[in-house]
Design a protein around this nucleic acid. Structure first.
Length: 468
RNA sequence: GUCCCCAUCGUCUAGAGGCCUAGGACACCUCCCUUUCACGGAGGCGACCGGGGUUCGAAUCCCCGUGGGGACGCCA
């Protein structure tokens, strides 16, 4: 058997909220697997829950995927547009006897479940309306719209070799006849997934761990339909920084929130790639490299805790590597949002960023630390009090005067400061620190001469003058 | 309650019976660099959940326990 089937993976989010970090990782793995095998990655929006699906959520997911650069090869497909197909298959199943109408009411069901729980049993439908040879079915109550249930096998096991968890075997006695069409005729999740995966020729279903329990039902359905069963790979969940289940209370769980907080997509992608998957000791790698390396064999079956500190570290790394123009465009927007204009008379953002990129972990930090180039510095009073001591004022005044006649380069400025230091028998920081406070507003900055050179002579002298 | 899954440093992980006195990364600590703070460099601290097997030999295989998690919807 040398024939190898083309790999087709899919990401199938339900549009009931933004794209969260767990979904993003599932999408990334599915996408990478398709890339690795030169297959196709399909995006499918599972919007059959009319009550909870919203167009805004659809857009939020699309935005998140776009920001990460996870481009689908096919789709996006919308399940609501495929209703005709589901109804067609349901009718076929009804005709074939692999599905049947059930008239039990939601209230009765709830009672049944409660009683079963009470008795220590697994809650499940009791099969009242399931047709059996020689069985007399109750008379359908009038005025009740029935649901359609799948006639699940009663005996035997369902098993599959999960690509991350290994072989999983479930007894059919654990499963009940689940609903495939609601009373209003709309198909349900487990059914749509099966029909879609089948129709779309999905070969590898890579999805969250919470779907493990749905898998045996879906496999049974696939068998009833005579469809090929795909490979399954169930990814364990991602926990919050505190080890708790990820929820909206944890703050930045939306992928776009990371964008807002100043993370580069490269960093988020690289971080997510290493969360649950590994390639030896490799930590930092490009997506191209990831697509080459990615496989299902090195995915951990255990849950992973999100670690923002490591993401920050990776982000810092990617900020150092990033294209200056790209960073400048982003930082400019952030400055504008802070009501700070960047004009052509002011130092070029690229130059300023080049000076600062090695000292920050996020673009938010970058924008904030660079802001004083474009507006008056916010003076840190504690730093001012500490460094701007009365004894140094005369030295600074003299230095300001000397600076006025200094050629404006970092070297020349450094020489001027050095002269002030030497001729007064001081140490360099004694002069550099107060200068730093006056010019940048704080006690931390890159080399003060480099900062001064970039800021420009006029502005530097103004700031020294106003501060003294 | 029932079923399913998981279990290596604080965190992410390497590890597929001997290469393990358990490796890497983040974080943390120390030192170096230094014009402050970072960056960077060099070190350091730090883990195989417990108990039974199997084996000449187990972090790796099996069983039990314990602890976590997930699922039991006319949600996806």
């Amino acid at each position: 058997m040398s024939f190898k089937q083309m790999v087709r993976t899919r990401f199938a989010p339900s549009p009931t909220g933004f794209l969260h970090i767990g979904g993003a990782r599932t999408a990334l793995f599915s996408w990478a697997y398709a890339r690795k095998h030169h297959g196709k990655f399909i995006l499918r929006i599972e919007d059959t829950d009319i009550a909870r699906s919203t167009p805004e959520a659809v857009q939020a997911i699309l935005d998140g995927m776009a920001w990460l650069g996870l481009k689908e090869d096919e789709g996006p497909f919308y399940q609501m547009q495929r209703i005709y197909r589901y109804k067609e298959v349901i009718q076929q199943m009804l005709d074939a006897g692999s599905a049947y109408y059930c008239y039990i009411s939601p209230e009765e069901l709830e009672q049944m479940r409660a009683a079963q729980m009470e008795a220590g049993l697994k809650p499940r439908y009791d099969g009242t309306w399931r047709p059996e040879p020689g069985k007399e079915l109750p008379t359908p109550p009038s005025g009740v719209q029935p649901v359609v249930r799948f006639r699940n096998p009663k005996v035997g096991d369902v098993a599959w070799d999960d690509q991350v968890k290994g072989r999983i075997v479930i007894s059919n006695t654990e499963l009940d006849d689940f609903i495939i069409a609601r009373a209003d005729g709309t198909p349900t999740y487990n059914f749509c997934v099966v029909v879609d995966d089948w129709d779309m020729g999905i070969t590898h279903v890579i999805r969250g761990d919470d779907h493990v329990n749905n898998t045996p039902r879906q496999i049974n359905l696939l068998h009833a339909l005579g469809a090929t069963v795909p490979q399954y790979a169930h990814l364990s969940m991602i926990l919050g920084d505190d080890g708790q289940k990820l929820s909206k209370r944890h703050g930045a769980v939306s992928v776009m929130q990371y964008h807002e907080e100043g993370y580069l997509p490269e960093a988020v992608l690289n971080y997510l790639a290493r969360l649950g998957w590994s390639h030896g000791d490799d930590e930092v790698f490009s997506m191209a490299q990831f697509c080459e390396w990615f496989d299902l064999d090195h995915i951990t079956p255990s849950a992973a805790q999100f670690n923002t500190e490591k993401l920050r570290w990776l982000n810092a790394h990617y900020i150092k590597q990033a294209d200056l123009g790209t960073l400048a465009a982003d930082v400019k927007q952030r400055l504008n949002a802070m009501a700070i204009a960047v004009t052509s008379e002011q130092p070029a953002l690229e130059d300023v960023i080049a000076l600062y990129r090695e000292r920050v972990h996020t673009l938010v930090e970058l924008a904030e630390s660079v802001a004083y180039f474009y507006r008056k510095p916010l003076i840190d009073e504690a730093a001012k009090e500490k460094h701007l001591t009365p004894d140094i004022l005369p030295v600074l005044n003299a230095l300001a005067a000397a600076l006025a006649d200094t050629e404006w380069s970092a070297e020349a400025i450094h020489a001027a400061i050095d002269h002030a230091v030497q001729s007064n028998g001081l140490k360099f920081p004694k002069v550099a620190m107060p200068l730093r406070v006056l010019i940048t507003g704080g006690a931390q900055s890159p080399s003060i001469d480099a900062v001064m050179a970039l800021l420009g002579k006029t502005e530097v002298l103004t700031r020294i003058g106003e501060g003294l």
